[in-house]
Design a protein around this nucleic acid. Structure first.
Length: 237
DNA sequence: GCGACAG
DNA sequence: ATCTTGTCGC
């Protein structure tokens, strides 16, 4: 059901066209359980510098009952067909993220994605891309801005928020997840309103800058990368 | 043309 | 994303 161009476009022009189509299908209204109890976090690790280009996608499934005790984790890895180009991150990582999510034993009710959702030049960051392809609710949790600027003052206290604005449009929310740290940039991915996105991210914070699903995915992806490259370095030449 | 630029 | 020790703050 998903056009091949949405996953593996022939080039940058095809990729741009795919993003416009995906963005047109993204839903920015709530269409998810009122209280998601099964949430996944996804993140990718790259290769050691100088090493061959690789992507390792980690998906972590968490239950609301034990927020720091993964119910399952899954890893997918391979050689990306896209280099990293700002605005086109999805095409580099999504083949592996899709595989990792598919290998989870249960379908999450919500996915927190490391990166932007609609706070993107064409309204199609990786969170939106993933959400539309899987038809699952997704939220973008980025650590820095791709486009736009924070409007007004963002307080230094945990929980402070301020609008992320671009071209006169509200595209996301800057969230100070801990006192004094650099803010997170939250945006709608698919089937989640911006208000709900911020609320869900906030409730999954556990004293760290990143919400648990994304924080654990990030940590485990890094561990997997090091483990894989460590054994590779031990192979006979 | 110049600067900006998720991971 | 990745590299990488010490150091600052709660």
């Amino acid at each position: 059901m998903t056009p091949e161009e949405w996953i593996r476009p022939a080039g940058l022009e095809a990729a741009r066209a795919a993003q416009r189509e995906i963005a047109a299908r993204a839903e920015v209204q709530d269409r998810l359980p009122p209280a998601p109890a099964l949430v996944a976090g996804v993140d990718c690790a790259g290769a050691a510098r100088g090493g061959p280009d690789r992507v390792r996608a980690m998906a972590v499934l968490l239950g609301i009952a034990a927020p720091s005790q993964p119910r399952a984790t899954s890893l997918a890895e391979g050689v990306p067909r896209f280099p990293y180009i700002p605005g086109f991150l999805g095409f580099r990582e999504i083949p592996f993220v899709l595989e990792a999510v598919a290998k989870l034993p249960e379908r999450p009710e919500l996915i927190l994605v490391d990166g932007h959702g609609t706070s993107h030049p064409r309204g199609c960051g990786i969170a939106t891309h993933l959400g539309v392809v899987l038809d699952l609710p997704t939220v973008g949790v980025a650590k820095s801005i791709l486009v736009g600027r924070v409007a007004g003052e963002l307080g230094m206290e945990a929980g402070s928020t301020a609008p992320l604005v671009w071209k006169g449009r509200r595209i996301g929310t800057a969230l100070r997840s801990r006192r004094g740290v650099q803010p997170l940039f939250i945006s709608t991915g698919h089937r989640v309103s911006l208000e709900t996105a911020v609320a869900r991210v906030t409730e999954w914070l556990a004293g760290y800058r990143l919400p648990e699903p994304t924080r654990l995915a990030d940590k485990l992806a890094g561990q997997a990368r090091r483990a894989i490259e460590r054994q590779a370095s031990l192979l006979p030449e």
